[in-house]
């Protein structure tokens, strides 16, 4: 064997056969979404109204904004359970600023800055001290919301300026709310970052094998730190939206949002073990959760019963492909 092998062309990405697109996770989610949509429109005459559908989006945009950043974080193999607590703290700080007479631009800035700061704090603890993120963020979750409780106790902040209401209640065009528009723009940005930039490739690389990524010259800690900051930033933005929508701040604000955001991410096909997932899936999952809760709401199903459907949906959608593969002969099982 003296002749050198011919230069092989190595493609940037593998050609995807059509069948894999049809059987992809996103396709499954589209089917589920369409099915729920159809069932909803038959079940309630009020469903297929543009304003109804617009109201529907308020159910999930705030959580979905966080889910976008959380998706990247989970793909990189970390998790942030403190996002709802960050909302509480950021909202409390905005409330304090209102008491001090701050105007709308300052309020928005404070909300976003507090979110970013909290995210950076999580990021520093995880990357600098090498701590497991699930435990760190359980701790900071208590800490951040705890500070909100210390400041507010059983009180509430009110009296946000009228112009501040736009972010959570305003419409950009016809039935398209500011929240929905912001979510769609953010989704496109996150899609681009994750699927079309080297930063996104590095996030996947870290999730699949952090040690190999490190030896390949990826600055693992720095990227993880940025992802924690991003998640904090999105939580800060969500805090601005929800505070504006509700017009008041209580320390118990956004309770349980962290689990709903993570449910969206997992339902969207992101592997909880890291290394796989797509923004399209997360966006679809957000719409599915919005459709389910809103459709059931129109049928007068109480919120707590809806959570049963969300829980079932999460487990069934994840279990289905596994069961299906087993039934087909267990090649991948």
């Amino acid at each position: 064997m003296t002749d050198t092998p011919a230069l092989r062309h190595i493609p940037d990405r593998l050609d995807k056969p059509l069948s894999s697109a049809i059987f992809s996770w996103e396709a499954l989610l589209v089917v589920v979404a369409v099915a729920i949509f159809v069932v909803n429109s038959f079940a309630s005459p009020y469903f297929l109204d543009p304003w109804s559908l617009s109201d529907l989006t308020f159910n999930f945009t705030e959580k979905a904004l966080i889910a976008l950043a959380m998706a990247l974080l989970i793909i990189s193999g970390e998790i942030d359970l403190s996002v709802a607590a960050i909302i509480a703290l950021a909202s409390t700080m905005m409330g304090m600023a209102v008491q001090a007479g701050a105007g709308t631009p300052v309020l928005v800035l404070i909300g976003i800055a507090v979110g970013l700061g909290c995210g950076a704090f999580n990021g520093l603890l995880v990357t600098r001290l090498g701590l497991p993120s699930i435990v760190v963020t359980i701790g900071t979750m208590s800490l951040f919301r705890g500070i909100a409780f210390i400041v507010l106790g059983d009180q509430a902040y009110k009296g946000y300026p009228a112009s501040f209401a736009f972010f959570g209640q305003g419409y950009v065009w016809w039935v398209v709310s500011f929240e929905l528009a912001l979510f769609l723009v953010a989704a496109v940005i996150y899609w681009f970052v994750l699927h079309r930039t080297s930063f996104g490739r590095r996030v996947f690389a870290i999730g699949n094998n952090p040690v190999a990524a490190q030896f390949s010259g990826v600055r693992v800690d720095r990227i993880k730190f940025i992802l924690f900051c991003l998640t904090g930033l999105m939580s800060g933005i969500a805090a601005v939206l929800i505070t504006s929508r509700l017009g008041s701040t209580r320390p118990s604000i956004a309770q349980g949002y962290e689990l709903e955001a993570i449910t969206m991410v997992v339902l969207g096909g992101v592997s909880i073990l890291g290394g796989a997932g797509s923004i399209l899936g997360v966006v679809l999952a957000a719409f599915i959760m919005g459709l389910v809760t809103f459709g059931l709401g129109l049928l007068n199903v109480p919120g707590i019963v809806m959570s049963i459907f969300i829980g079932l949906l999460l487990i069934i959608v994840i279990a289905l492909p596994i069961v299906w593969r087993r039934l087909r002969g267990g090649r991948f099982a």
Partner: peptide
């Protein structure tokens, strides 16, 4: 974590 996240909401519901 996924299983019990799901059953957490189911059991409470």
């Amino acid at each position: 974590i996924v299983v019990t996240l799901g059953t957490l909401t189911i059991y409470r519901g």
